[in-house]
């Protein structure tokens, strides 16, 4: 399954699961990044890392290593 760090900017996708270190998972869940939500990578930093995402009206910056814990499916 693709992970959020692999998604190109501007392409909406759906979150399937969030796994990984408990602190990271909990922080993402608190901010509404959880299974079933739609998420879009809106931007990438000049060196390609971190990335800026939009998920349920919230804009967040995540490192790629963190985004790799978010499994997504892309629409066809």
């Amino acid at each position: 399954m693709p992970t959020l760090d692999q998604v190109v900017a501007g392409r909406p996708c759906r979150i399937e699961s969030v796994t990984g270190p408990p602190t990271l998972v909990q922080r993402l869940l608190e901010l509404g990044v959880m299974a079933g939500e739609h998420v879009t990578v809106v931007n990438k930093a000049p060196l390609g890392d971190p990335i800026e995402i939009e998920c349920t009206l919230t804009r967040l910056s995540l490192r790629k290593s963190e985004a790799a814990h978010v499994q997504v499916t892309l629409p066809d």
Partner: peptide, 12 residues
């Protein structure tokens, strides 16, 4: 210690 989470809100 473990790498701190750097999930940061980009406020409007």
């Amino acid at each position: 210690g473990e790498t701190p989470v750097f999930v940061m809100e980009m406020p409007a």
